[in-house]
Write a protein that binds this DNA or RNA. Structure first.
Lengths: 200, 200
DNA sequence: CATTATTGTGAGCAATTACTCGCCTTCTTG
DNA sequence: CAAGAAGGCGAGTAATTGCTCACAATAATG
């Protein structure tokens, strides 16, 4: 399962539409039936596309999953960059946290399925890692440029922060006892700012 | 896949031994081949046990996974309770963090497989949630009994702490760029204590 | 309109694999 | 030692399902 890339680059509009229909259908089917029972035939059926067409845009089942994930990640990045950097550290952190929370309110069940049921191919894992590396670098640069930050090793701190914020996903999307969102946000912000501004 | 419980209670010693052999073999095979390609036949073969015997102790493949997870969780709890409660808050937190780290140094690859590749059945998920609830309750009681703690809602705080510590797993066991362990430990402790002792 | 490129179709196959079942072996019990 | 219980065996199968391929339909091109 090395290929995660689309097999064919869409050149006509209807092609891109088909691709989108497949992804949308996949999201539905995966949530409804789970990953294993979410067969490619079922996805094609729901998308009103023949199974052959499906395999013209996705080389295998895993690639569909990767496509869904890519959509999600891209949305997150876009949302984050839509807002401009606040000045105060606490506000920056808050933006960070809130963006993460918002981005997972979209379809918690899809996220849950992604985390609990989907087997991650090596390709998917490295894609995730790349994405995470980017975020870490970004946060690190932020920490270094900000005077309030008193942490010794900004690299480790950045990794911690990015990782910690991702816990929010697991607690909100995958959690059965749903934490109150605003409270969670406040507590997260408090913890992270306390950490960043505490003297070593 | 509702059944996660063993099909037959071992009544003779050799039975328990067989069960252990199967689990050990499963750990090896799952790590080596991945979950999907880690077939039950392969596990039985490696355990030098017939496939029929395997299915006398585990009703299905998922149950083997659940067995491995249970082993891991139990080991963690045991390790933690082996040490006695320190007095200072920072030390308590450190014990907590270190226990988590130690517990995942055993077999990082197994953990990684568990997180990235294994589909979690509903039964497995609820088992995990139960375990987590226990830990949260424990931590909460701890927070409430400790004078240094200044956090407003101990319930949320406890959830945050337990969840955050579990990030360590993802970063150490599943991470490709392995963070330095002692540094991670220090940073985690700093973050959590800073959070707990900061004024709301 | 002819030609080529792109997109869409879906019956069916190849391959995998979790799991059963009838039977044998070893242990315990009285 | 008899008889029942517990443990062990492994060839075979039923069922699933991801995916191919030969072909048709539609759109762009000149």
């Amino acid at each position: 399962m090395r290929d995660v890339e689309p097999r064919k680059q869409p050149r006509q509009v209807r092609a891109e539409l088909t691709r989108q229909r497949i992804l949308a259908a996949a999201a539905h089917v995966f949530v409804e039936h789970g990953y294993a029972a979410g067969t490619t035939n079922r996805i094609a059926e729901r998308a009103r596309v023949s199974i052959g067409s499906l395999y013209q845009y996705f080389p295998n089942k895993g690639a569909i999953l990767a496509g869904l994930l890519a959509q999600h990640l891209d949305a997150g990045v876009a949302t984050y960059h839509a807002n401009q950097q606040p000045e105060r550290l606490a506000d920056i952190v808050r933006l960070f946290v809130r963006t993460a929370i918002d981005n997972h309110r979209d379809d918690p069940r899809l996220l849950r399925m992604l985390i609990e049921q989907a087997p991650w191919s090596p390709g998917l894992v490295s894609r995730l890692e790349g994405y995470q590396r980017e975020r870490v670098a970004e946060v690190r640069a932020l920490l270094e440029s900000h005077p309030e930050v008193r942490v010794a090793d900004t690299g480790t701190a950045a990794q911690m922060i990015v990782a910690t914020v991702e816990v929010v996903v697991h607690q909100l999307a995958a959690g059965t006892n749903p934490l109150d969102e605003s409270r969670l946000e406040d507590e997260m912000v408090r913890m992270l700012t306390a950490y960043l501004t505490s003297t070593p």
